[in-house]
């Protein structure tokens, strides 16, 4: 089964990060690197990315074959998607276990979504 772990950012989490000393930030990044490494080592990680600031987002509307591009509506949004892990693991329980290791989970900013698949056909 594949699961998408979504990591959100909100004013509180950003404030905490901004208040960190250089050493604390380095330690935080090391924790992330270790988490990433352990997911790679277990063979569960498919892909993981951090997203650029939402002020850089573009909203695309297609109209008669033309793409109309506007700045994303996210500049004023306080809570937004900041990154994700796509994992393949045996169960939702296991995905939750991994999600709980993400630092943002301490602030309730981590969400696990099951991925739809082409299998499971046995009606």
């Amino acid at each position: 089964m594949k699961y998408l772990i979504l990591i959100y950012s909100n004013p509180q989490s950003r404030e905490i990060w901004n208040s960190f000393s250089r050493d604390q930030r380095a330690a935080g990044l090391r924790d992330y690197a270790a988490l990433h490494e352990s997911m790679v080592a277990s063979g569960e990680l498919i892909v993981s990315e951090a997203l650029a600031d939402p002020s850089l987002a573009k909203r695309v509307t297609s109209h008669e074959g033309q793409a109309l591009v506007t700045d994303g509506p996210y500049a004023e949004v306080k809570e937004y998607l900041a990154g994700f892990f796509l994992l393949e693991c045996p169960s939702m329980e296991r995905a939750i276990e991994q999600a709980a290791r993400i630092p943002e989970a301490a602030f309730g900013l981590v969400e696990v979504r099951a991925i739809m698949a082409l299998d499971g056909w046995d009606i």
């Binding site: 089964m1 099951a114 991925i115 739809m116 698949a117 082409l118 299998d119 499971g120 056909w121 009606i123």
Partner: peptide
């Protein structure tokens, strides 16, 4: 509730 796309269609 299903996680299977073909099953969902059906």
């Amino acid at each position: 509730r299903t996680l299977s796309i073909p099953e969902q269609r059906y």
